[in-house]
Simulated assay, not measured.
Amino acid sequence: MGHNDNRTPLIEPVATPDAWRCCRSVGSAFTGALRPRQPDRRFLASLPEHGLPRGTTTVELTVLAQNAKSVPTAAVVEGVFAPRRIDSAMTAFVVRHPTATFLVDPGICVDVRDRAIVELPGILRAAVTPPKDVIDIRESLRRSGIEANAIDFALPTHLHWDHIAGLLDLPGLALRLHRPEHGWAMEGPVAPVGGVRHAVRERPLDVYDLDGPPVLAFARSHDLFGDGAVVLVDLSGHTPGSVGLLLRTDRGPVLLAGDAVWHHLQVEELRQKSGYPGMLADDDRTETWRTVHRLHAIRGAVRIIPSHDHRAACAWHADAR
Rank of each mutant, 00 (worst) to 15 (best):
D18I: 08
D18S: 12
A19C: 04
A19F: 13
W20V: 14
W20K: 11
W20D: 12
W20G: 01
R21K: 13
C22D: 11
C22W: 04
C22E: 15
C22N: 14
C23Q: 11
R24A: 09
R24K: 14
S25R: 11
V26F: 14
V26I: 15
G27W: 08
S28W: 10
A29G: 07
A29P: 06
F30T: 12
F30E: 08
T31H: 14
A33N: 10
L34A: 15
P36K: 06
Q38D: 08
Q38Y: 02
P39L: 08
P39C: 11
D40V: 01
D40F: 03
R41C: 01
R41K: 02
L44C: 03
A45M: 02
A45V: 04
L47T: 06
P48L: 00
P48H: 00
P48A: 05
E49Y: 04
E49Q: 11
E49N: 12
H50Q: 04
G51D: 06
L52T: 01
P53Y: 00
P53R: 01
P53L: 00
P53E: 00
G55E: 00
G55I: 06
T56R: 14
T57M: 05
V59Q: 03
V59E: 00
L61Q: 10
L61R: 10
L61S: 02
T62M: 08
V63N: 08
A65V: 08
Q66C: 06
Q66N: 09
N67Y: 03
A68Q: 07
K69S: 11
K69R: 15
S70G: 04
P72C: 04
T73K: 13
T73Q: 08
T73P: 02
A74K: 09
A74T: 14
A74W: 13
A75G: 11
A75E: 10
E78L: 06
G79S: 03
A82T: 14
A82Y: 13
P83I: 08
P83V: 06
P83L: 10
